Simulated assay, not measured.
Amino acid sequence: VLRTAGGAPLVIKLLEGTQGIGVVLADTERSAKSVIEAFRGANVNIMVQEFIKEAGGTDIRALVVGGKVIAAMKRTGAEGEFRSNLHRGGSAAAVKISPEERSTAIRAAKTMGLNVCGVDMLRSNHGAVVMEVNSSPGLEGVEKATGIDVAGKIIDFLAKNAVTGKTKTKGRG
């Protein structure tokens, strides 16, 4: 697992985590093994990712709706923090993304089968790297940073594309 992710340092994430909670930076192979062992012992699902040092605690959140990036923000972690989550004290600003980043976000959404999602990417030495695809992204940060009515664009997309009786909901309710 450690070699597959490029070796230490590594980022280890609880799959059930949110807002940066349950995300650990393991600086050494020894600490990575210790953290993985602890999470496995707690019987929780984890993901191990390469640590992209050159990102410098900054990531890009692209909001994809209906196969188009409708808004993008750059999130920067608080001083000394590798996580860029706004709930961890990070800040956000509108950002112009590259054609490669735009294409990567759209492909990630399509691969996951999502019409609405937030795609979190890092700018690495080898191009855009997808960290996470969030099927229920928070909108307040991106709306505030960009001035774009993201919720309104999602509603417009749903109103235009909804087909009565064609939902995939299982059960009642």
Rank of each mutant, 00 (worst) to 15 (best):
A5I: 09
A5P: 08
G7Y: 00
P9R: 04
K13W: 07
K13G: 04
L14D: 00
L14M: 06
L15C: 15
D27G: 06
T28H: 10
R30V: 14
S31W: 04
S34I: 01
A38H: 04
A38D: 01
R40T: 06
N43Y: 11
N45G: 14
N45T: 11
I46N: 03
V48M: 06
F51W: 11
G57T: 05
D59Q: 05
A62N: 10
A62G: 07
L63G: 01
G66W: 07
G66P: 04
V69F: 13
A72E: 08
T76M: 09
F82T: 05
F82L: 02
R83A: 08
R88K: 15
I97A: 07
I97Y: 08
S103I: 02
A109G: 02
K110M: 01
M112R: 00
G113F: 03
G113K: 01
L114E: 03
C117L: 03
V119P: 06
R123S: 14
S124T: 14
H126Q: 13
G127H: 05
V129D: 00
V130G: 10
V130S: 12
E132P: 09
S135H: 07
S135I: 04
E140T: 12
V142Q: 02
A145L: 02
T146F: 02
I148N: 05
D149K: 11
G152T: 10
K153S: 08
K153D: 06
I155Y: 09
I155A: 14
D156T: 08
L158C: 13
A159F: 03
A159C: 06
K160H: 12
T164G: 00
K166G: 00
T167N: 11
T167L: 07
T167Y: 07
T167K: 01
T169P: 00
K170C: 06
K170F: 13
K170M: 12
